[in-house]
Write a protein that binds this DNA or RNA. Structure first.
Lengths: 345, 345
DNA sequence: TTGTATGCGTTATCAA
DNA sequence: TTGATAACGCATACAA
């Protein structure tokens, strides 16, 4: 590897002082036109790139934002990340992506690394911030981090942690779906997927049960089949639900992944969706469009989530005042997986 | 934000010199047991985390690897990244993820940023490294970068750039598929998706045509319908192909995304896959499993690609000798989207 | 084994 | 407007 040039090299070649080179680089102070041009020419000629590490040490900003999320192969997180990166890039920040796989110890490790690397902000989604009951040690760790680095939680909340938050109104999203299904004539609805104890599940299930009661919709206990948030879980839960003698006319899924699995399972069992049974998802990842039928779902507005999360940490990093809680609106996205209920059920 | 402590603070509190604290931190030199324990206690008590920026400046390693790829929402790249990160983490590296969206100017920008940030290595996939005909300016830029940073190209190659490469034997993968279809009795096969001028397309199309000739398989011109690498493109190309009067009995797709689209399009037109027509993909992303039918494809062994790419740059960073070209084997993954050809076609 | 002094490459401060 | 000098926080050569 070729040894990199420094401002000293440039300065010497341009016949100016290192400070002048630095001034040209940052644009933070006046430099005479001729010297500036001379310096710029030398920089260009040598393809000089300033050492961001050295710069960071003195400016105390790394121009990096850490993003901790469970799994980037999940299109929901990938889409949020993509937009976050896109916006961050426009502000001059790069993103360190940390997949925690939902494991607490990996989260802890990454939190430590990100603090050491002096990132200018941390965006965290999934894992501990998603536990309905926050574990104190997890909270303490995050609090410690928050004292050093701007921190925002996406779609989560930690008891005892007064962090900034960007979140979706998941309950409202569920209500939108229930309302939609009700209007289609559904009076018997099931709910599959999700892990109890995770807010992404608990909020939705509660909203579902509350809405069901309000609308006079029946939901038998055996129609509620938790599992996890994966496609496989959707398959398993749907299979379990469909093995009941008495079936609902529609099934809501905790997220699009489980809805994908539910669709796959139902189809395999010979059910025609939506004629025999309606299915809904949650998130509006692009995969819902490629299925036949495309899955009716609720959009979390992933782009806005990603963008807002970056906005929060960057503003905090710049010492600006930022709204503590930012709620992103959901919207119902009607596709082809729900039909008017014409069954005798 | 609380001001971070430094080794000086720790040193003072522990009653030792900063160098002793540093020695405890790095483990690079002997420290008496009692002092070491004292220092460790103070570090722990204060939750001190050394400033990686300052450390990097002197050690000349940032412990970061830059990854430039087109689009992380594509599960192929997401899976490669995930495994790369997993392995990198075990070696003490973090990953900066840069989505280029296939745009050359974004690639250039990120190349510059990664060099400035003094990453210990760059892994690049897609975009310019995938052009069948390398543009000289692109190559020059990469050559310039390679002089400063260990660099590895994933599934690509640049004319005039003597870089390290990790790649799949895509031609062989296609041959495996053709051979498989031939054995199923298919003698008339189409090929959809992909952009000419991109190696990911050109290699496969050539391999397909060569194999077809070898096996005596018919492939009419109108059965070759390029497009791009997206799901939508798969839909469009398949629709175009299926609008022919005379149809092939099987259709190969440039990748799984287009196969997904092809399946969707075929199903919508009333074709039953695989009974009416067989479809194959390429990559073996997890989405091929959730479709009904699951799509027969070729595995690129994404995990091994990610891991190997990290291995290459890390070894280069450590001054080790590394094999210039590493070919990752493909493997045929038979699922449900291909049937024995029993048609009269 | 320990401490002092120096350097990494840049920006910031201050005096000229 | 410019340059000399210090400072960022750590690791390391060298001296003790």
């Amino acid at each position: 590897m070729k040894k990199a040039m420094t401002v000293y090299d440039i300065a010497k070649e341009a016949g100016v002082s290192p400070s002048t080179v630095s001034r040209v680089l940052t644009g933070n102070a006046k430099v005479s036109r001729e010297k500036a041009e001379k310096v710029r020419a030398i920089i260009k000629k040598n393809n000089f790139k300033p050492n961001a590490i050295a710069r960071s040490l003195i400016t105390r900003e790394s121009r990096m934002i850490g993003v901790i999320l469970p799994d980037i192969t999940n299109p929901f997180f990938a889409s949020v990340f993509l937009e976050a990166e896109n916006y961050a890039m426009s502000l001059g920040y790069s993103l360190l992506l940390c997949n925690s796989m939902g494991k607490t110890d990996i989260e802890s490790m990454y939190l430590r690394i990100l603090v050491e690397k002096k990132v200018d902000g941390i965006i965290m989604a999934g894992g501990r911030v998603n536990d309905t009951k926050t574990i104190k040690e997890h909270a303490d760790e995050v609090i410690e981090v928050m004292e050093q680095v701007p921190f925002v939680i996406v779609n989560g909340k930690m008891t005892g942690v007064d962090s900034h938050r960007v979140y979706t109104d998941e309950a409202h999203g569920i209500e939108q779906l229930v309302d939609y299904l009700y209007r289609l004539g559904h009076r018997r609805i099931g709910f599959i997927g999700g892990v109890k104890g995770i807010t992404a599940m608990d909020i939705k299930l509660k909203a579902f049960l509350d809405s069901a009661k309000e609308y006079g919709i029946e939901c038998k206990n055996e129609w509620i089949v938790p599992g996890s948030f994966s496609i496989e879980s959707g398959i398993e839960s749907m299979n379990e639900l469909l093995s009941n003698r008495d079936l609902p006319t529609a099934v809501m899924s905790v997220n699009d992944f489980t809805a994908l699995g539910a669709l796959k399972a139902a189809t395999k069992r010979g059910f025609v969706v939506p004629d025999d049974i309606s299915i809904t998802g949650f998130d509006d990842i692009y995969l819902t469009d490629i299925m036949t039928p495309a899955i009716t779902t609720v959009s979390q507005n992933m782009m806005q989530i990603g963008r807002t999360a970056v906005d929060v940490v960057v503003n905090l990093a710049n010492g600006n005042k930022v709204k503590k809680n930012q709620c992103i609106k959901t919207s119902l996205v009607i596709k082809d997986s729900c039909a008017i209920n014409s069954s005798k059920r």
